[in-house]
């Protein structure tokens, strides 16, 4: 049953032209969710992480309010360790769309010189991502934050609501989630409490790629294969994006044709060897080699329940 083309059934039932396709339904649902949040919350913000999921979510948001602009700003939590290409792309993309972009870096972490090489991935992620996000939400008083997370990414996400309630300490309580029925979302909350809203909850990685291809959504070049300087550490290919990366003696960056399946802090994001330079080529690779996209993320490997633990602590 491991045929790469996923063909299973004997007969093929094509969607009739009278029916919405799965991408149309997913898009319509995401638009509904985004509009509902804007109607029921006082001060929403869209978390913009520059990755492909963010790109798809932002594209949906642009459609949701057309011909007006989305009535909320974008927020990027900048750990200062993102790929340089991501920052360039972020600034030009927000400018092209005419949206307000807020950038927040944890000033305490910055002053203490927290980074993945000196402090390890766990401390770095906690201080520069989790704590920084909480700071930013509190600083601007946002009561709802859109995120591009999908339920197929990880086991604890599969149980999270689309409108995910957070207490005043930004913590997620998996056992106290509000039942979510039909397309009725309960966005009521007390002052200080907030919501994380996930419009792409029901999308899979393949849906996102198909949508990006169908809608011609621009992405950072890092998603497409190119010759890049990498070193191999613990079986993971890490790109040497700037001279802050300490090299062991005898360790020399090698030029390899690589791309990234997810984007994050460059020291924590593994590259895959690839020659796929277009979206169809990427899809082709996905269909022939099925590893989960988070495999390249160093922060998820610590323990089976690591994501759930981080979410309870306020990670997005």
């Amino acid at each position: 049953m491991s045929d790469p083309d996923l063909s299973i059934a004997a007969g093929t039932v094509a969607a009739s032209p009278e029916r919405l396709t799965h991408l149309q339904r997913l898009e319509a649902e995401a638009i509904h969710i985004i509009r509902e949040t804007v109607a029921e919350c006082e001060r929403p913000v869209m978390l913009y992480s520059i990755g492909k999921d963010s790109a798809a979510m932002l594209h949906v948001a642009m459609k949701a309010f057309h011909p007006a602009k989305p009535p909320f700003p974008l927020l990027h939590v900048d750990t200062t360790w993102k790929f340089r290409e991501m920052i360039r792309f972020r600034d030009s993309h927000a400018r092209n769309l005419g949206l307000e972009l807020l950038v927040h870096t944890n000033p305490d972490g910055l002053a203490a010189g927290v980074g993945p090489f000196t402090h390890g991935s766990a401390v770095h992620t906690d201080i520069m991502k989790t704590q920084a996000l909480k700071q930013a939400l509190d600083k601007y008083g946002f009561d709802a934050a859109f995120g591009g997370a999908r339920r197929d990414e990880e086991a604890s996400r599969a149980k999270e609501r689309i409108f995910s309630f957070r207490n005043a300490a930004h913590a997620w309580e998996p056992k106290a989630q509000r039942p979510e029925l039909w397309r009725l979302y309960n966005a009521r909350k007390h002052r200080g409490e907030s919501l994380r809203v996930f419009p792409l909850s029901n999308w899979t990685e393949l849906d996102v790629w198909q949508y990006i291809a169908a809608e011609n959504i621009p992405l950072p070049d890092l998603y497409f294969a190119a010759e890049r300087p990498v070193v191999e550490r613990d079986g993971t290919l890490i790109m040497v994006d700037d001279d802050r990366m300490p090299l062991a003696s005898g360790e020399t960056p090698e030029m390899k044709s690589v791309r990234f399946r997810t984007l994050g802090c460059y020291p924590l994001t593994g590259a895959v060897e690839s020659t796929a330079a277009t979206i169809p080529a990427i899809l082709q690779e996905m269909l022939t080699s099925r590893t989960s996209e988070r495999q390249g993320r160093v922060i998820d490997r610590d323990q089976a329940a690591s994501m759930e633990k981080k979410k309870r602590e306020g990670y997005f």
Partner: peptide
């Protein structure tokens, strides 16, 4: 990572087919 030759010629056809799935 496989070179995807099996699919190489019909990835566009595959994409078109999978764009029109229902849910």
């Amino acid at each position: 990572m496989g070179d995807g030759s099996l699919l190489h010629t019909d990835i566009d056809a595959w994409l078109a087919r999978h764009q029109s799935k229902d849910l």
